[in-house]
Computed example of a mutant assay.
Amino acid sequence: MKTSRLSRMQLLDNDTFAAWIFLSPALILLGVFVIWPIAYLFYLSFTAGSFTSAGTYWIGLKNYWRLLFTPDFWQVLGNTFYFTVATLIPSLIIPLGLAVLLDRSLALQGILRSAYFLPSIISLVAAGLGFRWLFQTTGPINAFLNLVGIPAISWLGDTFWAMPVLILLSIWKQLGFNMVVFLAGLQTIPRSRYEAAELDGANAWQQFWHVTLPGLRPTLIFAAITTAIFTLRSFEQVYVITGGGPLNSTNLLVYYIYQEAFAQFDFGYAAAAATVLLAVTLVLVYLQLRTWGEE
């Protein structure tokens, strides 16, 4: 009895040791490129100074107090919230509608799926340059407006219109990815549910509301959280199209962190702002994992 128990423990120890051996390369890479940078970012948020001969020094929570009492930071947070919400809602509704249509037998279904997914694989920098050309004062959009008798709009120079241009680009960029996610989710809903709904006299809208949406609940949450994370980390759009202007109206949190770190060389303050962004992202990831766990 003792011998068999000892052999099982030895086997378990051998398996555990082998598992750690196989996992160690991935764990080392994870530690070096993920855990260590996050830990150093957190440490840096409590310091001031620069990476020169003078070095950095500990200042405690002063960077976080600066965040609380800096009007520009709160304006950037407001911009980021507006940008995220205004991007998120259409980025769920439009792809969901397209996915429902493409899930049915339509002509040219494969070509349409590829066409809708194409924006997802285009570089954001290239797309940003294209949108900047489209919406410049003498660009094609204003030329079309002039043709129909509408005065030209200073899209990128107006504090009201500049942000919608960034939002439009982000929606266009996210549309294909979310559509593919919803198409995959639709495949998991049993057809028998739709047949039962038809037998009960449910029309197309009632089937969508009572069968499709409940069946897509985990997929909707996944798409919402990934889209929110995509918008929270937006940088290229601002850098290429508006540079945070006009009058700071399109400055988003990641671009603000970039400016503070690499234009003002205030790395501690930038690290504190980045820590806030990391905390928000971790909350979203936690909600996603919790939802999948419940499912």
Rank of each mutant, 00 (worst) to 15 (best):
L213F: 09
G268I: 11
D72F: 03
T212G: 04
S170K: 12
A107W: 13
V211Q: 01
A127L: 15
L199Q: 08
L220F: 14
A143K: 03
R8Q: 14
F42H: 01
L289Q: 15
R290Q: 13
L106Y: 06
S114G: 08
Y116G: 01
Q187T: 15
G268M: 11
S154T: 09
E260Q: 15
W74V: 01
L68I: 11
I38K: 07
S105K: 15
A19H: 03
N146Y: 06
L145A: 06
I229Y: 05
T231N: 02
A18Y: 12
E195N: 05
A48F: 02
V254W: 05
Y43R: 12
P218L: 08
A26N: 13
A270D: 06
V180M: 10
D13N: 13
A270G: 09
G243L: 10
N142C: 06
L278A: 15
S105T: 13
M9T: 05
F81P: 00
W161I: 05
A224S: 14
Q109H: 09
R217C: 00
E260P: 00
A197T: 04
F144P: 01
A26V: 14
I122G: 01
A18D: 00
E260R: 15
V125D: 04
L41D: 10
L278E: 09
I167L: 04
A143L: 13
F265W: 14
Y40G: 01
V32A: 13
S120R: 00
Y57F: 12
L134T: 05
D103S: 13
L147D: 13
N63F: 03
P246L: 11
G128I: 03
Q288D: 09
G31Q: 06
P95T: 03
T250K: 01
E195S: 03
A48E: 15
W65Y: 08
E198M: 12
I121R: 03
V180S: 00
S234I: 04
T138R: 12
L186H: 09
A19N: 10
P71H: 00
Y269C: 11
P218A: 10
L168S: 13
L134K: 01
W172Q: 08
L61H: 00
I59H: 02
P119D: 09
W209N: 09
P71L: 02
Q75P: 00
I153W: 07
F83T: 07
M1C: 06
L102N: 03
D13H: 06
F222A: 13
T47D: 01
R113E: 12
A271H: 04
L102I: 07
Q264T: 14
I241P: 00
G149E: 10
F117I: 04
I59K: 03
V76A: 03
L6S: 10
W209T: 11
M1W: 05
T226Y: 01
L216Q: 09
Q136P: 00
R191H: 12
W133H: 09
F262K: 10
I38D: 07
L102F: 03
F235A: 06
L289I: 15
A127V: 15
A184H: 02
L23R: 06
L232G: 00
E260G: 02
Y194F: 15
S170E: 13
A197Y: 05
S120H: 05
T291V: 14
A18W: 12
L23E: 08
I59V: 15
A274Y: 14
D72P: 00
I221S: 08
D72G: 08
A19Y: 08
T250V: 04
A99R: 08
V285R: 01
V211A: 02
K173E: 05
A270I: 10
